[in-house]
């Protein structure tokens, strides 16, 4: 090997020892290795099926190639997009991908929009009812308040009548003649009536109203009630505390224990 004098000088300046060793090769290659190497590489290329046979370039295109090129490309893109996911699946699953084991009623999709529209219309109707339903309990509480108010009114009225000397007992109005249910006869005094009312829970009152609410003569009830102190129903619907404030105002607790 011809040594480049510049490189030799360079190493001599750094290390004379290495300059003296320059050019010595301790490694050896087998005999005829370099003579045989090109053939060995070409044999390997052939064994590994690397394309050694160069085909002449062909500049011809099939008939109608360019006419159908754009649609073929689009088709290929679509196929690849569709196939990209199924390619990731095991063959046993990708083969099943197009099989739908589920059945639907005949004309399901034809009638589906109308079905949905009908459902929406029905829901709209129910929605209105639901607003009432949403405040169902509140309205019964409102009715409870009205009943209490009526009770207060009647009690006051009867007591006034009683105190006017019409009878010894203010609650003597509850007789066999006015009440069909014999169990109600035990409420024949003001005290018994108050205790009976006080013993009822809200739920019992609500259940009673749910069962018999329709049997009330609402006109008679409203006409005989002093509803002037009741909150406006709209206020009540907007603010839940309105009814509570009213009950506190009329000293509801005291009424219960009276």
């Amino acid at each position: 090997m011809n040594t480049d004098p510049n490189i030799l000088n360079e190493i001599r300046e750094i290390s004379p020892l290495l300059a003296d060793l320059h050019g010595i090769n301790v490694f050896q290659a087998p005999d005829n290795y370099f003579q045989n190497l090109p053939e060995s590489v070409l044999i390997r290329l052939d064994k590994e099926k690397v394309n050694l046979n160069i085909q002449e370039p062909s500049f011809e295109v099939p008939n109608g190639y360019f006419e159908s090129l754009s649609s073929n490309i689009l088709k290929k893109i679509k196929e690849e997009e569709m196939g990209s996911e199924s390619d990731e699946l095991p063959p046993v699953l990708s083969g099943q991908k197009s099989i739908n084991p589920f059945f639907i009623p005949q004309n399901y999709f034809e009638t589906f929009p109308q079905t949905v529209l009908d459902k929406i219309r029905n829901e709209d109707k129910r929605e209105t009812g639901k607003i009432v339903s949403f405040h169902f309990k509140k309205i019964y509480r409102y009715a409870t308040a009205a009943v209490i108010a009526v009770g207060l009114f009647l009690t006051s009225y009867l007591m006034f009548q009683n105190n006017s000397g019409k009878g010894k007992s203010g609650f003597a109005v509850v007789t066999r003649k006015t009440v069909d249910d014999p169990g109600a006869l035990k409420y024949n005094s003001e005290k018994a009536f108050n205790e009976g009312i006080a013993s009822l829970s809200d739920d019992q009152i609500i259940r009673y109203l749910e069962k018999n609410g329709n049997s009330f003569d609402m006109d008679a009830l409203i006409n005989s009630s002093d509803t002037s102190g009741l909150p406006n129903p709209e206020d009540y619907l907007i603010d839940e505390n309105t009814l509570n404030n009213y009950l506190n105002k009329i000293n509801y607790k005291n009424f219960e224990t009276q």
Partner: peptide
Amino acid sequence: DPSTKERAFESIIKKYQEKLYWHIRR
């Protein structure tokens, strides 16, 4: 050139094989 491709490649190997071999061997 497809007609001289293989022969050219053989020449490239012959031209550089020793230098590259020793570089790799070291």
